[in-house]
Structures are given as C-alpha cells and as structure tokens.
Write a protein that binds this DNA or RNA. Structure first.
Length: 534
RNA sequence: GGCCCGUUAGUCUAGUGGACGAGGACGCCGCCCUCUCAAGGCGGAGAUCACGGGUUCGAAUCCCGUACGGGCUACCA
C-alpha cells in the first residue's frame, strides 16, 4: 500500500523548489530583501503547494505535546489546501515498536486528524517509515561525498569526550575540533578500505556566516557561525543521525513548512547546513513552545496522564481535546474559547501561536469536555456512552438496540452533570441495577430523621396509583405529599431520592422515577421504609 | 560552561507606541434559580504587564542589562 517507491532523482533532489509564503505569515517587517551575508536563502516563488509533516518517533504512545504539534500541522495544511504527511521516524530500533506505531495512528484518527500521505494512506513520496528509507540516506551521503561536503572521522568516542570536556572547561563551545577534516583524502580512503571504524561528518563551509532564519512563530532567530560544529551525519554503522535523516526526508518529501517542538530550535541551524550542502532550498520553520506540567517542568508521566489514549480512557471527547490543545498556545481571537475543528482550520495561522511555554491544565480540559458533552444530541450521547455502560456491566451489548430509546431519554438528564463520559455509568447505575445499596451516610442523614418513614410510605402509595406513570404526573402526585404530611418538600424528595438511588445526589427525581419504572420504584421505596425512622 | 528561546492574575491567553486606570476563558468566592447535584444567570476578588535602566510628549508594547525558566550542546529523536 505505501512503498510506492518514487523514482529517485526526481525533482525532489533538484534545487528547483522554492519555499512559498503561503498562509498567514508574521506581518512583522523584516528586511527580507536585503541580502544579508550568511543569511539563509529563502525561495520566493509564489504558489508552491503547502506540504507539512508530522514525524513521531514510535518510542511511546502519542502524547499531549505530539498531539498538539499534529493538530497545528494538520490545521495549517487544511487551511492552505496543502498536504498533511505522516512520517514515522523509527530509526531507533531499540525503542521503536510496531505497537507504538499502531497506537499513534489510532490516536491521530481518534482525534480526527486525517493524513493525506503516510502509513496506511500511501502516497507518492514513500516509504513513510524511516527504516525503509535507507537507500535515500545512502544516496544523499554519496552526493555529499562527491561534493566533499562531508568527511570521514576516525576519532574514537573516548577521544571526543575528552576533547569536549577540555573545550568546555576552557569556557568555549564544545563542538568537534575538526581534527579529521584535514586528513589527506587518500590517507582517509585507505583507512576506510582497511576497515577502520569511522563516521561521516558534515564539513560546515568556512565561509558560512551566522545562520539566520525567520521562524514563523518566533521571528528572526540568529545562531552565531562559531556555534556550528562539524556534527555527525552518518554513524559508524552506516545509519543516518536524526539531523541528517530528517533533512533528507524533508527534502525528498518536498516539505515546505517544518512545524515541530521547540526542542528542535537549536537543531535548526545544523539542519539548515545540511539543506545547503544538499543544494536545497530551506523550508519555513515554525517552532512550538513546550507544554509543561503544573510545576512548570516539561510535561511527563509524573504529572499524570500524558497520552492521548489516557484521556480517551478518562472519558474525554476527541473534539474537546482538540479544542483544548488548539487553545494551548494558539488563540482564535481575544474571546473565543469553544470552537470546532472546522473553525480552527478556517482561522489557523502561525502568527497567533504564542511563543511561551504553556502549563497543561486538566481542569480546564474537563470543563471544556463538559461543554462538549452537553452539546451532544441524545442520540450521540447514547452512542458514545453505550460502550461504557456495557463495560461497566450495566447493559448487555445485545440489549443496546432495544434500550436505545430509553438511553436517549436518559441523556439530557445526565449529560449536563458530568464532565467526563466515565462519570456516566456510576451516575446512572441505580437505573439499571435490580437492587441497590443505600449509602450509609445518606441513610443516616436522610432516612433516619423523623417523618422519613411516612414520606416514603406515602410516596410509595402515590407512585403505585399515579397515571400515567410519567415524570409530569409523578411530579404533581409527589408535590402534594409534603403538605399533607406537614413536611418540607426537600425532606420528602430527598428521602425518595435516597430510597431509589442510594445516594443524596442523583439525576432529577421525577424523571429518574419514570425511567426506573413503577415496579422497581415502589419496591425500592418499600425497602427503604424498613430503614427509615418514624 | 557556551549558544538559542521565553517571561501579562493560580492557569490558558488578548495586546504589535496613545482607545489599557490591561479584555476573554478555566479555577476560586458570593447571590439568584432549584427536588439533590449540576447546568444556567448575575456579581466579585485576583496582574506594581519578571526586575532595572534607556528611547519617546507617551511603553505591557521598541532598545540594553539582570534574574528566573526551558532547550540544544550525543555515533537519541
């Protein structure tokens, strides 16, 4: 399905691609046209179609930060009629697994983020797994070798560590000292031929000045020339390093905008050097700030749930998570909080992405989720809640269809008092079960008070006779009870509530009684009577 | 250590030199509604715009410095 190997050497490796400025860009006025020495060349051609990619590493499940990056990539692509490419950066064989890949795809789909190219979707720029792209990297390396843009380095890891420490101790940058760069090509070649272990390093051009680029989110970013070292591009085992592989892939997949986490900002100058060595135009970069935990530290398992699946399992709706994450670092305007994905797409732009890190707030997510739950139609609500009721053992899967109308009438009662879908089964369990347990403290508080027994007996009697057995009629029947007994409405209603639900908190009483059915309702009231005080 | 990035209420944010005595949202507090809990309505507290200089008639907004936080500095991604 994927694997449609594309003819190598096609336009992807030609230098003809320009980088477009499609989409809202920072309006800040910079001296775009001034040829600054050492400035990154940016293509100026007009209508290059937008192509973005999300490139997770399948070393774990899709986490909140990755999800937000995916959302922004997706929204930007959709906004500009471009392509959203999914690429799996699985070059770390130790930690990458097929299960993780599958889980990531599942999460993306659950969020509603569809990709135009990638695993299971195929596309003309595949393969979309880095481990399947070895030949592309080999070939890119060959090109760089031909151009003398890379050189073999025989320094041992120990030597390198020593040099690094020494350089750092001296207060300078800790980059590679370029020892092997001055090796005679012939000498180097014979050492390679003799099988001596070596890596390939990029030879940063002497003439390369400061690396300056315009980040779509952060504006102009400058890295001093001397901060660039001749970093490793291909390891001694022949595999590419991250900074090399991504660039080769971004080039061959004709990526126009690289939208990724802030942790890659410092890698950007290195990657720019590779783009240049390859003779390729540099894409536009957009670096998203990190998502932090409540302690201001980078979000991690310590902070609780971090994976998208965990939130799904907690009863968060995908549309709420997308809305929340979109809002965590982006704003539609000065007051809009709730919006759907289509609205996000219609309005997304990098110039409304904020530069500062954001603390993830599960409370606000929960609130937003409540908003979405309340917004569900009864049919949608029943649909989404059915699996949870089945899992909770309250409903048999085969009964779901016949019980559907009943479930839909239950929807409005419970939807507005939960923030998570997982809160539904416990809240409605009393309507399913044949028998209930009465919470002791509720019994203590409500049933063991004077008048409770009379209230329950009278209510049971009323319920046995009311016609039709519907909420409205039930309500008028029960409303008459307190006065007759000289009790306060609340006393009667709470006693009934505890009797039928076992708790002092429940969905609305009269509707609950209707949904329970006359027989069970009366039986429960009678059962509770035995616990009640005179 | 070096380099890069960031800094508006507890939190997410609006803000691009005058309309800011700083707007919205979550959370918090109070009132109303009410059969409980929610939801909803109304109102409130909460920000010396990190700090210090400077530019300007005027700065949250521009410049410099400091502090704090984060990132990179790997034959990890």
């Amino acid at each position: 399905m994927r694997r449609r190997a594309r003819s190598r050497c096609s336009s992807s490796l030609s230098a003809s691609r320009g980088i477009c400025c499609v989409g809202p860009r920072r309006t800040r006025q910079t001296s775009h046209s001034d040829p600054v020495p050492g400035r990154v060349r940016e293509g100026k051609s007009v209508s290059q179609p937008v192509r973005v990619r999300f490139a997770p590493s399948p070393t774990g499940h899709l986490h909140i930060g990755g999800a937000r990056t995916a959302i922004y990539n997706w929204a930007f692509a959709r906004r500009n009629g471009g392509a959203f490419v999914l690429r799996i950066d699985d070059t770390d064989p130790e930690r990458s697994t097929a299960e993780n890949t599958a889980a990531i795809l599942r999460s993306l789909r659950w969020l509603g983020l569809d990709w135009d190219e990638g695993p299971e979707a195929g596309g003309p720029y595949g393969p979309y797994f880095q481990t399947a792209r070895g030949p592309l990297y080999d070939e890119a390396l060959a090109r760089l070798q031909e151009a003398s843009a890379v050189y073999p380095c025989f320094c041992s890891p120990e030597e390198l560590a020593e040099k690094r420490d020494a350089s750092r101790a001296a207060g300078g940058p800790a980059g590679y000292d370029r020892t092997c760069r001055s090796l005679e090509p012939a000498a180097a070649a014979s050492r390679i031929a003799s099988g001596e272990p070596h890596v390939w390093r990029i030879a940063v051009p002497e003439s390369r000045g400061d690396v300056i680029f315009d980040d779509a989110i952060r504006g102009t970013v400058t890295f001093p020339a001397d901060a660039l070292d001749d970093f490793v591009v291909v390891r001694s085992d022949g595999t590419p390093t991250y900074n090399f592989a991504t660039v080769v892939d971004d080039v061959s997949m004709e990526i126009t905008h690289v939208v990724r986490g802030d942790d890659h900002l410092s890698n950007t100058p290195r990657q720019i050097v590779v783009f240049e060595a390859l003779g390729q135009a540099v894409p536009t970069f957009a670096h998203l700030s990190m998502i932090l935990g409540s302690d201001g530290k980078r979000l991690s398992k310590r902070h609780g749930a971090t994976s998208v699946e965990a939130y799904r399992d907690e009863g968060i709706l995908p549309e709420a998570l997308v809305n929340y994450l979109a809002l965590l670092g982006w704003s539609l305007d000065d007051k809009t909080t709730v919006f759907d994905a289509a609205t996000l797409v219609d309005n997304f732009s990098f110039d409304r992405v904020s530069k500062n890190p954001a603390v993830f707030d599960p409370e606000k997510l929960a609130w937003l989720n409540g908003v979405y739950i309340r917004d569900l139609s009864p049919a949608e609500f029943a649909e989404r809640v059915t699996p949870l009721l089945v899992d909770a053992g309250l409903l048999r899967a085969e009964d779901a269809a016949t019980r559907r109308p009943w479930l839909e009438s239950l929807a409005p009662l419970v939807a507005e008092r939960v923030k998570r879908l997982t809160e539904v089964p416990p809240a409605v369990a009393f309507l399913f079960a044949d028998d209930i347990e009465i919470d002791p403290s509720a019994a203590e508080k409500v049933l063991s008070v004077p008048g409770a027994r009379a209230a329950l007996e009278t209510a049971a009697h009323e319920l046995g006779a009311v016609e039709p057995y519907e909420a409205a009629a039930i309500e008028s029947a029960l409303r008459a009870v307190p006065e007759r007994l000289g009790l306060k409405p609340k006393q009667v209603f709470q006693a009934v509530r505890v009797a039928i639900s076992g708790s002092t908190v429940s969905p609305p009483l009269f509707e609950s009684l209707e949904l329970l059915g006359r027989e069970r309702a009366v039986a429960r009231l009678e059962a509770a009577t035995r616990l009640a005080a005179e």
